[in-house]
Amino acid sequence: MKPISYGRQSIAQEDIDAVVETLKSEYLTQGPQIKEFEEKFAKYVDTKYAVAVANGTVALHLCAMALDVQPGDKWLTTPITFAASANCIKYCGGEIEFVDIDPETYCIDIDKIEQKLISAPAGTYKGIIPVDFAGYPVDIEKIYAVAKKYDLKIIEDACHAPGGYFIDSKEINQKCGNSRFADLAIFSFHPVKHIATGEGGMVTTNDKELYDKLCLYRTHGITKDENLMDENHGGWYYEMVELGYNYRLSDMQAALGISQLKRAAEGVSQRQKIADSYTKAFSEIEEIQTPVVPKNVSHAYHLYVIQVDDRKGLYEHLREAKIFSQVHYIPVHTMPYYKKQGWKKGDMPVAEAYYKKCLSLPMFPTLSNEEQQYVINKVIEFVSK
């Protein structure tokens, strides 16, 4: 059996052809593929606007800029996420505080969000960054209700969940990252994600003003829009009206993204089938805790996370069998940088308990039945000892 990683990109001949065609075209960057990718992705997640950017971290930073995060502003997020979900607020000089997770969904605990808000003076917090962890759609409708009560902004980190959705209180399917209940949402196109462009990301919104800000900030804060400029010397003229960055995606990456997007729904469906096979195989084994997914949720399964008591033992057992599982995530508040900010072990007991047992098994659409059965057998072999 060849080595099996926890995640793997799927590159088809049509993807290669799309990139080659772009390489032969007039534009390698800042060309027509960008706009096409944005429009097709916006349609896929059911939102008005999408802005393609260099990666998911950039997407988060641009969101913080667009929402005018200022030094000292306090935002909330989950400790079980990649560090960028928290770091984006720090980039703008703001402060991040963590809220513990729900023990079943592994997403931020909505009740604990409100408890934190109730106990603080009015106006203490400016916003929330919930994460659709592992592909599980956080109940952004409930978070929105809390945020509206306390006048908070929302950035939904949907990097794990394009194609996932939940059914809201009005029985409507709400796709992850559609920004119906958030100011902005972000996605990543890292190779292990649902859509791979090498590196890359996307910001989605239904707010035209925020969309315009994002477009400006991703390109150095430079514009040729006469409505934004002080002067206009001719067709060559441009002005830098804000401090922005070079956060653009290339046309080659966009071409790959457009091609990958054609198979995105099929990929989610295959991930769900793989997850069902794992869950069925482990359902009668008390030593293995599998994901809990209620009927009103369609999990996108970027990750398939189990919990076992001897996580390190299982990790090493699988590694010996050339199965490269992974841990998602080390709680962000326990990282040395955030410990210097005053956070410590014991502050997020549910997240820390989860971390001690969690392990992400191989999950990607091209995982074969034979490979998956091999993984299942090796997991059961270990826990049965």
Results as ranks from 00 to 15, higher is better:
Ile167Gly: 07
Ala281Cys: 11
Ala147Cys: 03
Cys63Lys: 01
Thr57Cys: 01
Leu210Ile: 11
Met1Glu: 09
Pro71Ser: 00
Lys378Val: 01
Ser269Glu: 15
Ile172Thr: 10
Pro349Phe: 09
Ala158Cys: 05
Val268Ile: 11
Ala122Cys: 12
Arg8Tyr: 13
Gly201Pro: 01
Ala264Phe: 07
Phe282Asn: 03
Thr290Arg: 09
Ser283Trp: 08
Ile195Cys: 06
Asp46Asn: 12
Ile108Lys: 03
Asp46His: 15
Pro130Ser: 08
Val53Thr: 14
Ile108Cys: 02
Asp230Gln: 13
Gly235Asn: 15
Met240Pro: 00
Arg271Ala: 07
Gly94Arg: 02
Asn246Trp: 08
Asn377Ser: 12
Asp109Ala: 15
Ala122Gln: 14
Tyr106Cys: 07
Asp347Leu: 13
Gly235Leu: 15
Leu60Thr: 00
Arg8Gly: 04
Thr205Met: 09
Phe82Gln: 07
His317Ile: 03
Glu95Pro: 00
Gly31Glu: 05
Ser360Asp: 15
Tyr245Pro: 00
Ile129Tyr: 01
Gly127Ser: 01
Gln9Leu: 07
Gly93Met: 09
Thr334Glu: 06
Met348Ile: 09
His317Ser: 13
Lys322Pro: 01
Gln30Tyr: 13
Phe189Val: 05
Ser384Val: 03
Val99Pro: 00
Tyr337Lys: 10
Met348Ser: 11
Gly346Thr: 08
Val51His: 04
Lys2Cys: 06
Lys340Thr: 10
Leu216Arg: 13
Tyr338Ala: 02
Ile89Thr: 01
Leu249Thr: 02
Arg319Lys: 15
Lys126Gly: 00
Ile376Met: 08
Thr81His: 11
Cys176Gln: 04
Glu239Ile: 03
Leu359Tyr: 04
Tyr304Trp: 15
Arg319Asn: 13
Asp347Ile: 12
Phe98Val: 04
Leu359Trp: 02
Thr81Gln: 10
Glu114Ala: 03
Val292Ile: 10
Tyr245Ala: 11
Met202Gly: 06
Ala182Gln: 07
Val20Asp: 08
Glu371Thr: 07
Glu286Asp: 12
Asp168Val: 09
Asp139Met: 05
Gly234Thr: 12
Glu239Lys: 14
Val350Gln: 13
Ser360Thr: 14
Ser25Glu: 05
Val146Asp: 01
Gly72His: 09
Ile128His: 09
Ala196Pro: 00
Glu104Leu: 13
Val241Met: 12
Ala265Gln: 14
Gln373Cys: 02
His328Ser: 06
Ile186Thr: 10
Lys175Pro: 03
Ala66Cys: 09
Gln174Tyr: 09
Ile113Ser: 01
Ser283Glu: 12
Thr334His: 08
Gln272Asn: 12
Ile113Val: 15
Asn173Pro: 10
Pro162Tyr: 03
Ile258Asp: 01
